[in-house]
Design a protein around this nucleic acid. Structure first.
Lengths: 246, 246
DNA sequence: GTCGTTGCATAACCCATGTTAAGGCGATCT
DNA sequence: AGATCGCCTTAACATGGGTTATGCAACGAC
């Protein structure tokens, strides 16, 4: 079973094979691919479909008039970009890729069908979308109150746990295909300061970051450096976590 | 008609008298009152009901271990605190009052009934909750990219337009019952710097702030000082705005 | 190969914002 | 009337993080 959405939703509730099948099907239709740094959808567009990330990393972002950019959220495999956005007339932000990305465009009609026929799936999709808004709230806390080191540590913990919940970690390692300048845009810091901060985390042995691989030698230590409390991720089934290769 | 929720939802869609009536009814049951600086719901609680603010101001907030506090969102009359939170096991943040507040506790069962019987109301509640998450995203942009002056100007524009959409403005004036320290907790600034920033806005004739009354002599000017673009509020019916006394 | 490009690292300097501290003023209590 | 309290204001000083600039390594194009 390789569908990261199913894997993630099962953190919240058990799904029957019927339910899993409808999700598999949905993820197999309307599959698209994009390269690095392309837009999936742009500010001003009228959203007609729901996008499900199947592989690769993307982000929600917004530009200010003078060129400053804020990355508002990261999308990992299994993430849905904006459940039910079609209620709104037009996009108030853009979604772009950070790596090559495979995603499924799920038409509105399919969502409506699922809502009618599969209440438990509907509930699980609700959960996924509420968790995403909880993540957004936590970013508000980070940007408002945490200093650069805490902010960075916090983000890395979040990304690691989110990847783990879709089986994309190996022991204490995961991919981190972000440039320092993308990290900067997400954390409201300059690239120079992101660099300083990463050095500091390395010097404290809180992370090992080489190329695109992040290793977290002591997750508890990193969590406390970032004042990280995982409760906002609402991963209700704690316990054992499966690595990618299990 | 004094129900601010109905007033707000009608920005999005017309409601029939049946639909308005069910909302009136919902807002009349389970009404509670609290004074200033009391909690409506606390981090760790299991939410059993949806809270609808009828009058007064409240906020979502979170404390860090060392006492720092971030205000994550402001709630104004007509706002619902977390649509469908009951999908989640427990609250990951608290909601507290900033002024005396009247609110209605809407039990989960009532929501389910409405969802079944009134699709247009359901749609409108969807809209309200999507707008709230759009506001949260915009706060991420403010905290990440805007400097103190822009941030402040932006927030004041947002609050003014949100109040106007529920009829709580008079011409270019509205109430602003926040202390500078509450503003500071919301904007990720120190109280001293909030004070400096307000002085600067006053000196530029962008705002008049006396007591709890905010006057905005030139909304366009304030908007451009804050790089404020109202699109994220998704107020689809532009045009004429009714003041409180009309 | 070598030329551009992209990302990482580091240094010197600077400024927006934080910190600490003190005083003022209006509301409320006694 | 005096005392207390919450909130606003201002000043002096400190600092986290921004800016600008430069070098260097990896990589792809041709």
């Amino acid at each position: 079973m390789n569908n990261p959405l199913i894997r993630k939703l099962q953190q919240f509730t058990k799904l029957s094979s019927d339910e899993r099948q409808v999700l598999e099907q949905v993820a197999a239709e309307g599959v698209r691919q994009l390269g690095t740094r392309e837009d999936i959808i742009r500010e001003g567009d009228k959203p007609q479909a729901l996008n499900l990330i199947l592989s690769g990393w993307a982000c929600r972002y917004k530009h200010l008039e003078d060129g400053r950019r804020q990355i508002i959220a990261f999308f990992l495999p299994g993430d849905l970009c904006d459940n039910h956005v079609f209620v709104l007339r037009e996009m108030d932000h853009s979604v772009g890729t950070l790596t090559p990305v495979t995603f499924a465009q799920i038409p509105r009609r399919r969502i409506d069908e699922i809502t009618l026929e599969y209440p438990r799936v509907t509930q699980a999709l609700w959960w996924e979308s509420l968790v995403n808004t909880a993540i957004q709230r936590e970013w508000t806390v980070s940007l408002g109150q945490r200093d650069a080191l805490e902010r960075m540590a916090h983000l890395l913990c979040e990304l690691f746990l989110r990847l783990r919940s879709v089986g994309l970690t190996q022991e204490n390692r995961c991919e981190l295909p972000l440039t320092q300048s993308e990290l900067a845009d997400a954390m409201g810091l300059s690239t120079v300061h992101v660099n300083r901060t990463l050095q500091e985390l390395r010097a404290a042995n809180l992370i090992v970051l080489k190329g695109r691989t992040l290793t977290i030698p002591d997750l508890d230590a990193l969590q406390s450096a970032g004042q990280f409390n995982p409760n906002y991720l609402h991963l209700e089934h704690e316990g054992r976590h499966l690595d990618a290769n299990e």
